[in-house]
Each structure stands twice: as C-alpha cells, then as structure tokens.
Design a binder for these strands. Structure first.
Lengths: 347, 347
DNA sequence: CTGAAAGCGCTTACAG
DNA sequence: CTGAAAGCGCTTACAG
C-alpha cells in the first residue's frame, strides 16, 4: 500500500507550504495571522489523507517525546516476587497514563542482542525524556554520567550513594518500624525478638534502625537475630526459624518482629514456625511490611502503588521544570496495619 | 554540562568524517577496506566521549530501533487481575530481553496529556519497530491502517476480525476444553454442567465449542449455564452460583466444568459454593484455565508466559524478515492439569 | 580507503 | 499572512 502521508503531502493537497502545515497541526499559531479558511483547508486535507505525525521525527526535531523509561536491574517481572513489584509497576503505569507519558521498559540487554553491560544499557535510557530506576544496586559510573548530563532520573527506594545526589522516592521505614515496636511496648511486651535477613539494603538497615531506636528509648534491649533468609534454601531456612522460635519460647519471649523481604521467605518461614502456637495469646507477631494475602498480620504495609505514582510525578516534574536545584528526594509514610496478631503481653 | 556526544564529535576527535564513524560503529564495514588503526582510533574516541547512538535518529534514518511496543487496551497492570496478565508480561519481557529488544508500553493516552482516542494512540505505536496488542477489543480501523502500512504487529489471543488478516498467538482452547470433557466422560460422568460467563470473547466461545463438541461426540447433552460473571456484583454472583449448585445436586449432576475468566470471579464463586461438598467424592470439578493458587483443581492451565514469549518471537520474525506472506497465526497447547478434583462418577 | 551529499519527517527561527 | 532554509543525528547510495 501507499506510504504513510506526511506533512508535505498535506501541503501539496492544500496548496500551502509544509511549514504552514506543521504550524497549523501543532496548534502553534499564536504569533501568526492565519486565514481561518486556510486552517480549515489544511485540517481537512490532513483528515482526508489520514495523516498521523511521525513520532520519531517529532522527537528528533523537538527533543521531547513524552516517554519515560523504567530501568530495572534484573527483570521488571520477576516470577518469584510478583506481589512485591507488581503494585509498583501498576502505580507507575497509572500515573504515567494520567500524565500522558508512554513507558519504555529497558530490558537491560541494551537492544543490541549482545550481552551489554549495565553501562551501555543505562546510557540507552537517554532515548526517553527521563528514567525511573529500581533495584538494590546503584552502578555509580553510568548513573553519575546521566546525572552529570542533566538527564532527569528518579530512583525508587532511598539511596545515599553519589554523595546524596540521587533523586529518589523512598519509604520511611525508620518511623514505621519504630511505631510497630512502640505498639508492642504499649501492649506490655518486654521480651521482643527482631528477626531480619542478612541484607545490607537500606530498606533493611532502615527498618533495623527504627526497631532498635524505639526499643532503646523504651529501655528495652531488643535482641536482633539475623538469618540468612535470602540465600538459604527454603527447607533450611524453615528449620532454622523453627529452632529459633522454640528457643525463644523457652526464653519467655512474648513478641516477634519480622522484616519482610521481597521474596517473603522470611515471614513465610516464621508463619510456618508458629503454626502450632496460639497467636496472639501466646505470642504476638508483627511484620515490617505486610506480605500479600495476610491481612491478619499486624504491622505496616509498604505503599507500593503510591511509590510508583510519586516516582513518576517527581520525574515528570524534573523533566518539565528542568530545574537544576537540589535533588528531589522524598520518603513516603507506610500504612499502619492493626491486624490481629498483636495482643497484650501475657502477665 | 555539555550535550551528549554525537558521531560528528567522534569524527572530529578521530580526524575522520562522520560517515566513517557511522560505518565503523555500525560494523557495516564489509565492503570497505579500512585501516585497523582508524577503526581503533574511532572506537577509542567513541568510548572516551561516552558516545551512545541516539536511537531516535537511528530509527528515523534506518527505520529500526530495536524497540517493540506493547499496547494494552486498558491498563497493562490491572489490579484486579494480577495473576492473569502478569505472566504474559513476564514472558514478553523475558523473550524481548533475550532478543535484545526494549519494550515500549503504550499507555493509551497518546502521550499528549489529552484523552486521545484509540485511533491516535494506536497509530503512535509506529514509533517502535513493531507492536504487540492485547485486549478483547480490536479497533478495526487503526489496526487495519497499521496492517495496510506493513507495520509488524501481533495480537495476543486468537482474532478473526479483518478477514483473518491479523497475526496472533492464541491458545487452543477448543482442544484443551474437549480434553477435559473427555476425561470426565472416561471417569464415568454423564450428568455434567458447564458454567460459563456472559462473554463473547473468542477465548470464551472457543472453550464452549470444545466442551460442546466433546460432549456431543460422547453422546452426552451437556447443559450450558451462563451466568453474568463479569458484570455481577461479587455477592450476587456468589448466591447465584450457590443456588445453581444446589439445584444441580437435586438433578443428579456429578461433574461441573467451569470457565476461568480474567478476574477469576466465576471459579471463585463455584469453589465457594461447593465448600460443604466433598470433592471429588460427591462432585467432580474441572476448570478450563487454572486460577492462581489452586494447583488442586483438575483441568488445564493456560500457558501464559509462553504466550508472551511466542508473541515476541513472532513479532521479531515479522520485523526482521519483513515477509509479506500470510499472516502468522499460531495456537499454543494448554498444559493439562491432573489435579485432584476429578474422580470416578458415583454409581 | 574515505568523504560530501542527500534524505528520513518533523520543528523552529528567520525573512519577507 | 506564508514560505525557504537550517537543523535534529543518524544511514545510505554515490563518488572519488
């Protein structure tokens, strides 16, 4: 079939120049006196020919394409942790649609078929007007390169690399975790254990900071127990946690606080381990981040969808204002979950 | 800071022409005798300057940018039906990464902030090398327009619109559904009910065709019961299905086949309705498409991840071969699930 | 062995 | 009121 019509075709049909067509179609007619009849003639011709602007050419000429990138360091759709990432992506898409932005998912291979390194792949994000990054890992060189070039970017999750120059939308895990411990203290718990995974991500260390700070100001030495959740085989992790719980019961522990990780394996192991224990009568349980499908668990929920939405807003702000001020960094509050697994401490 | 380097900058740095840079970087040096030293000098300069080809310009000049679009008619990340779409998207991403393609998610608003119609939004997909479409809806005009222009596209899900000219990757629901009924027949069931939603999508009518055909060839009049699953309020649907099940028990029904829809509301309602019934001793159950989290249900599973993967392969095939032959259309087999909800019919 | 030139389809000063 | 021209950053004949 015939090739797609372009502005030149419309110009020929309407008897004007291609420039005039561009001006009229873009609505950019402010400064010009234009015969209304000409305008209508051009619009009619465009309609008749079925004209659609070529977005590639538009972008090349105008350097805005209303596309924002999403770069994930692993897979954007990891199978093991569906419930974790999906709401974030959903929030990103929702807000992007609301702001009229298309999304480019960078798969990390760099579109070259070859196994490109992060460096090349990350640089490719420049095709978009700006980019969202997420993943635990900050490859400093290419991110610094983008930042230095004034390329708008926003990380999802708090970041302190590159001297704090990375814009991000994170979660206030410190406050939320402290609040959970306070709640336990108010319910009379004094022997509390905090179960966390072997993980140095800020989302983990921030939680720990909140727990330990709250415990300290309540004059309470919370014991921190680290298990190698992420690495452990499921079976091994399960029996490790079961032994822990058994020991704690002997030690008079009345409450356990557990960190939720992206895979949910640690909280799952704990839930399994307390299967025969009456919760909260015999033992209170609190999660720092609620796993999907467990609305009964007391603690807090991570505002994942909102995280995605806010990240898009921040990014689009950056793009449209092109401000070179301080990096935009913000923390979102978690959603407190009352649940039914925190009870009064047994006397 | 300085603008992004382009080929001209490399050319200046290496003391060659921009053409030579383009040739060397694209690896398009077959027909030319090129001093290895020049080649290295250019590559070095590109590396030093941190050159990244502008994909927009590349695309405008060469009509390839290693990006494939994903156009969904609603949201790509609908909240209600996570389990349904997620594996398809995961498959798309996986295969796209394997083939070195980035993904553009078209949000459907057309990138203009304004509420653009499908027509405009769909035409925008032309920015990519090709596009995957999914959704129950085929807006014939813009799709025809893309097809007519030779734009590579693949639908996810079987389509018969536009005189069968739409390339797709679908699922062989007819065969899979027939197999389920055959299995019930072999287990001695004669009074079977088929529960389906009020839905005219091919994925629904194909299932029905399989069920009815298999029943007919077994000499068995399967009663087809249509409930308005999709539209019904959850409560209303629940009680409607509960009444049905009660009636069926009085009629001596020994097996129920239920269609799985994207929201899963119908199978959920059925599971709830048979809560007090011993399955499969008193009643056998089969699902035409297994809902997440119910590995015990007999029937088949839709190969969703594979659907995404194959769609990408077909699309990339189209893009790279630019064949103008018959539309590529393929059906994937479902995965039979033995499960534990089909038993021998009570005598 | 390498470069000057045209062209992809637009936008945007600039000139009448 | 409208158009000729340059330019966005590439690729691709074509010419030496």
């Amino acid at each position: 079939m015939a090739r797609a019509p372009r502005q030149a075709d419309i110009a020929a049909a309407a008897g004007v120049s291609q420039t005039t067509v561009s001006l009229i179609l873009s609505g950019n007619t402010d400064g010009m006196r234009l015969a209304e009849s000409t305008r209508l003639r051009v619009l009619k011709a465009a309609e008749t020919l079925g004209y659609v602007p070529d977005p590639v050419a538009t972008r090349l000429a105008s350097s805005r394409n209303h596309m924002i990138g999403v770069y994930t360091f692993a897979s954007a759709f990891p199978t093991a942790v569906d419930g974790f990432y999906y709401p974030i992506l959903a929030g990103i898409e929702e807000e992007a649609a609301a702001l009229g932005q298309d999304l480019i998912l960078f798969t990390g291979t760099g579109g070259l078929g070859a196994r490109a390194d992060d460096k090349t792949a990350i640089r490719r994000t420049r095709i978009a007007d700006g980019c969202l990054f997420f993943g635990r890992h900050v490859p400093e060189e290419p991110i610094d390169w983008l930042l230095g070039g004034g390329f708008p970017l926003v990380y999802i999750g708090r970041r302190d690399e590159l001297a704090g120059r990375i814009p991000y939308v994170g979660v206030d895990y410190v406050a939320a975790s402290a609040a959970v411990v306070n709640r336990l203290v108010e319910a009379g718990h004094r022997e509390i254990r905090y179960l966390r995974s072997l993980d140095d991500a800020l989302s983990s260390t921030d939680r720990e900071r909140g727990v330990l700070t709250a415990a300290a100001s309540a004059g309470l030495p919370v014991r921190r127990i680290v298990v190698r959740a992420a690495d452990a085989e499921v079976g091994a992790l399960g029996s490790e946690v079961r032994e822990l719980v058994e020991r704690w019961r002997g030690e008079g522990v009345t409450a356990v606080v557990v960190e939720e990780t992206d895979t949910g394996s640690l909280s799952a192991a704990l839930l399994d381990a307390v299967h025969d224990i009456r919760v909260p009568a015999e033992l209170s349980l609190a999660v720092l981040g609620q796993p999907a499908g467990h609305p009964e668990l007391s603690g807090f929920e991570v505002p994942r969808r909102e995280l995605g939405r806010q990240a898009v807003r921040l990014l689009v702000d950056q793009i449209t204002s092109s401000s070179t001020g301080d990096p935009e960094q913000m923390l979102l509050d978690c959603i407190p979950i009352t649940g039914s697994t925190i009870g009064q401490a047994p006397c």
